[in-house]
């Protein structure tokens, strides 16, 4: 692990700080996933990891490789964009599925499907 010592001090401090902060935010998100009591509350927990953790750790990786190999290619941006775009889709789908299943089971505390305002042909 000698290469990391090639980093100048400012880059090393940035990389360490960003990595630690990102990991801490991810950990807090997972703690929330463990701690919350209902599914709809748990639905909010992974967004911490995806919005905070991914961006910070990818930024650390970008800085590390850019300084080490002095090549300013930011391919970690691909991961950031991809995760930012796809996670909401997953969470939305899971939320809809949970709502659908709760309605089928007629659980309490779940908003009912709104009646259509008037008779219309089904789509």
């Amino acid at each position: 692990m000698s290469h990391l010592t090639d980093l100048p001090v400012w880059a090393a401090i940035l990389v360490c700080g960003l990595t630690l902060l990102g990991a801490a935010i991810t950990l807090i998100g997972s703690v929330g996933l463990l701690r919350f009591t209902s599914f709809y509350e748990r639905l909010h927990a992974p967004t911490l990891a995806t919005s905070g953790g991914v961006i910070l750790i990818c930024a650390a990786s970008i800085i590390c490789f850019a300084v080490l190999q002095s090549r300013w290619v930011f391919h970690e941006i691909l991961i950031i964009v991809f995760v930012l775009v796809t996670t909401p889709v997953t969470l939305m789908l899971l939320g809809q599925a949970a709502l659908y299943r709760d309605r089928v089971k007629e659980k309490r505390g779940v908003p009912l499907k709104q009646r259509p305002p008037r008779e219309e042909p089904t789509e």
């Binding site: 990102g22 990991a23 995806t50 750790i57």
Partner: peptide, 24 residues
């Protein structure tokens, strides 16, 4: 749905873990 949410979070955390291995 809780299980799938857990799996999704597990995937994201594993991805971040791989990135830290890459830095290391």
């Amino acid at each position: 749905q809780d299980r799938i949410l857990g799996l999704d979070t597990l995937y994201i955390n594993a991805m971040l873990m791989l990135l830290t291995f890459g830095i290391r």
